[in-house]
């Protein structure tokens, strides 16, 4: 996406210069494609996840919910930083703050793993970046 036409032109000139007299149509194309591929796979380009994640869960209260959720998080090397829970009659609401930067899993995989837990226990679990909560209520 960030690769502009000028950049491609620049790379092409460079490849032609490097090849010198050997520059054929196919060789130039091959060289340019190689250079472009190298740019696109610069390490760190697959963006790093920044900030914390909120796990919110609610449903009918029963034993073992926190254990199941935290167990699943632990399996994925996720650091649990805070946890708050409230019980209203038969229902519970639970909010956890987690740090996923040390986890080998990405956010989508974590969401899928927790969705499995939610389906098994018949509860709701939402996994969202913290910024949405900050933005909506704070300037």
């Amino acid at each position: 996406m960030k690769i502009s036409e000028e950049l491609i032109r620049e790379i092409t000139y460079k490849v032609i210069n490097d090849l010198g007299a050997e520059a054929t149509h196919d060789k130039v194309r091959e060289g340019v494609e190689k250079e472009l591929a190298a740019i696109q796979t610069v390490p760190g380009n697959p963006e790093k996840f920044e900030g914390k994640v909120l796990v919110t869960s609610f449903g009918l209260n029963k034993p073992g919910i926190v254990a199941r959720i935290t167990g699943t998080l632990a399996e994925m090397d996720i650091d649990l930083q805070d946890i708050t829970q409230r019980i209203m009659q038969d229902f519970y609401t639970l909010i956890m703050i987690i740090d996923i930067t040390s986890s080998p899993k990405n956010l989508k995989e974590i969401q899928e793993a927790l969705q499995k837990v939610a389906d098994e226990l018949n509860i709701k679990i939402y996994v969202q970046h913290e910024d949405i909560f900050r933005y909506m209520f704070r300037i």
């Binding site: 909120l54 919110t56 609610f58 805070d82 708050t84 409230r86 609401t93 909010i95 703050i97 939402y126 913290e130 949405i132 909560f133 909506m136 209520f137």
Partner: peptide, 13 residues
């Protein structure tokens, strides 16, 4: 916790 319980729930609702 830095987050208000009711605000988090409100967002999800």
């Amino acid at each position: 916790m830095n987050f208000d319980f009711t605000e988090v729930l409100e967002t999800i609702m």
